[in-house]
């Protein structure tokens, strides 16, 4: 089955949009989660500070 020129153009733009939008959303969420989990103080340490 032959792919027409119009179909090729549509598929190209759909794939680029799918790739960029979905993965940037995931990158944003995962970077936020990484930042929070890395720089958030562990609960045990927070309790220690509060008790002092």
């Amino acid at each position: 089955m032959e792919m027409s020129e119009t179909a090729f153009v549509i598929v190209t733009y759909v794939l680029l949009t799918w790739f960029i939008v979905s993965n940037f959303i995931l990158a944003g969420y995962s970077f936020k989660e990484w930042f929070v989990s890395t720089f958030k103080q562990p609960k045990s340490e927070q309790k220690n500070h509060q008790s002092k």
């Binding site: 020129e5 090729f8 153009v9 190209t12 733009y13 680029l16 790739f19 960029i20 993965n23 940037f24 995931l26 990158a27 995962s30 970077f31």
Partner: peptide
């Protein structure tokens, strides 16, 4: 993942644009 994504999201569309866009590539 972030590094890979940012670079691929720049490199691939720019390559397609320099090559003349999808219609030119199809031809």
């Amino acid at each position: 993942f972030t590094m890979l994504l940012v670079l691929l999201a720049i490199v691939i569309p720019v390559c397609l644009w320099v090559a003349g866009g999808p219609r030119e590539i199809y031809q």
